[in-house]
Each structure stands twice: as structure tokens, then as C-alpha cells.
């Protein structure tokens, strides 16, 4: 019974949870819902569902329910999709749930941020099984040998019809897994300018593009690019904030970044209070100049 199941909606998610699984000090298995399994994550059993795409929450929660039997812990990487599906699953299992786990104190005690990340709560789990969504930033991946993968079938029959889907990711890395992120704020005027200035530097660094809520609300950037409390929580090696004043809302999403660089023409912008490297300058001059230097 003391056993963990990792639900990987995309293959790379399993790797980023190996460190978390190791801290629970019990065997773990993985279900790969889509894609092929990487070979060296140290799972005892590897299940491959090979879905073309993950079905709506009602179907997927029901579909994985029987596969969750016998596990004390069921975990996924924190994302909009995992929260959508796993909260439903936790209820079907009659279990407990902890979202956005940032540290493991014991197999029944976890820490998680509340109040937009300003306070850390210690949560004691009183019910088995427990379903967890985990922020991988605080856990270093570990590797180990896997056994051969086993095929599983997950029913995807939903009463919900998917009418359309738009994915605007393009070729850039995913925000939540990117090593480098360049983000822009409201001063970027329009989407074309945003793409040229912020996108240009991001591409030079092989990084992802992020945006503030103000930039998204103004239609300058897509909603999936929003970084912050109500958007994506990121933890890259390098976070470059261009024309971002640094609202509490935005800061809540970036504070796990290793190195924060701020470029802003307002020397009093709050972002400078958290930035490791700050440059008071007009982003229209500084960002292209930095891009040119990196390329030289």
C-alpha cells in the first residue's frame, strides 16, 4: 500500500517528479498517458497508455481510477490540466488532496504556498490515498533503472465534446520547464513589438517567452504566457524581466527562479528589490543591445 503512482500527462513530467518520489522513500510506478517512456527514471513499473490526447476531466479521472487502486500516493506535476483532472480523481478515490506541494516533510506532511505565495502552510494529510500536484522546482531529478513498460488502456469516453483547441506554444520551450525565460510587460505596446523585442531575445537564448497579466489583458501576449499567481509559476535558471514593474501578483510566479534580471527605466520599480541583476534602462535600447552581444 505504501506506494506512489506518478501520472505523467507528458513524458518529461515523470523525470521532473523523480526527486519528489525519492523523498517519499517508497517504491513508485509511472503511467505515461501520452508519448513514450524515458528509460532511466527508476520506476518499478512503467505503464504506457499511448493516448493521442488526454480526454476531458470527467473521462480521464474515471479512466485512470482503477489504475490508482492500491496506491497510497498519486502525484502529477502542478499544471492547469493536473489540477483539473486530479481534484476530480481525488474525490472519486475518496482521498485527500494537496495542491502545489513545494516540500515533503514526511509521507503525510507537506508544505505548500497560500495567499498568493506570501505564506507557506504545513499541511497534514488525514486520509489515504492522497493526491498531490507538485511544483518540481524544489526537487532535483534522480535516475535509476526501469523495468519494461506495460501497455494499459484508458477509456476516454466523455459526455463533454471538445469543439476546438488552440495551442500557441510554437517551437519555444514550455514556460514551466524552460531553463531561460524572457518576459515582457505592458510597455511593449503591441503584440508585434512584444514578439520582436521579447521573442527575439528569448530565441537567441533558446528560452521561453513570458508576460505579465497587464500585457495579457491588453492583448499584447497570449493568456498561456502569463507568469504569476494567476498564471504560470516558473523556476528557470535565468529570468529576464523587461519592462516589468514587479507586482506582487507577478512576483509570486517568479521567486523560485535562480537568477532574476530586471531591465526597467523606472529606478524605483519594485522588481529591482528582488532582482539579482538590475539595469535601469529603456528596454527598447537595452534588450536588442543585449541580444546583439549574446550573439556576437
Amino acid at each position: 500500500m505504501a506506494r506512489t503512482l506518478i501520472l505523467a500527462f507528458e513524458p518529461s513530467e515523470a523525470v521532473s517528479l523523480t526527486g519528489f518520489a525519492a523523498q517519499l522513500q517508497q517504491p513508485f510506478d509511472v503511467i505515461f498517458l501520452t508519448g513514450q517512456a524515458p528509460a532511466d527514471i527508476g520506476a518499478e513499473r512503467v505503464f504506457v497508455a499511448n493516448l493521442d490526447q488526454v480526454a476531458p476531466a470527467d473521462a480521464t479521472a474515471k479512466g485512470v481510477l482503477s489504475l490508482c487502486e492500491g496506491y497510497s500516493h498519486i502525484a502529477s506535476v502542478s499544471s492547469m490540466r493536473s489540477k483539473d483532472i486530479l481534484a476530480r480523481l481525488a474525490s472519486l478515490l475518496g482521498g485527500a488532496m494537496v495542491t502545489d506541494v513545494v516540500s515533503v516533510e514526511s509521507n503525510t506532511v507537506y508544505k505548500r504556498p497560500i495567499l498568493a505565495g506570501s505564506v507557506i502552510a504545513t499541511v497534514e494529510v488525514l486520509q489515504t490515498p492522497v493526491v498531490l500536484t507538485v511544483r518540481p522546482a524544489g526537487f532535483s531529478p534522480v535516475s535509476g533503472n526501469d523495468s519494461a513498460s506495460e501497455a494499459v488502456t484508458i477509456s476516454s469516453e466523455s459526455v463533454v465534446t471538445v469543439v476546438s483547441q488552440t495551442s500557441r506554444g510554437g517551437l519555444r520551450p514550455d514556460l514551466t520547464r524552460a531553463k531561460v525565460i524572457v518576459s515582457g510587460g505592458r510597455p511593449l505596446k503591441d503584440s508585434e513589438t512584444f514578439e520582436r523585442i521579447v521573442g527575439g531575445l528569448a530565441d537567441r537564448l533558446g528560452g521561453a517567452v513570458g508576460a505579465t497579466r497587464a500585457a495579457v489583458d491588453a492583448g499584447i501576449a497570449g493568456n498561456e504566457l502569463q507568469v504569476g499567481q494567476t498564471g504560470k509559476i516558473v523556476a528557470p535558471e535565468l529570468y529576464i524581466a523587461a519592462g516589468i514593474s514587479g507586482s506582487t501578483q507577478h512576483m509570486a510566479g517568479i521567486k523560485d527562479s535562480k537568477l532574476i534580471v530586471a531591465i526597467n527605466k523606472d529606478p524605483d520599480a519594485p522588481i529591482f528589490q528582488v532582482a539579482d541583476l538590475g539595469l535601469v534602462a529603456d528596454l527598447y535600447d537595452a534588450v536588442p543591445a543585449l541580444q546583439a552581444l549574446i550573439g556576437s
Binding site: V162, T166, T176, N223, E224
Partner: peptide, 11 residues
């Protein structure tokens, strides 16, 4: 809203 963009569902 989804992690990578948006989708339209009929419920």
C-alpha cells in the same frame, strides 16, 4: 484556458 492556449468545450 489551458496550459498551452485555450479550448472550447460543449457540456
Amino acid at each position: 484556458e489551458t496550459d498551452s492556449g485555450e479550448e472550447c468545450l460543449e457540456l
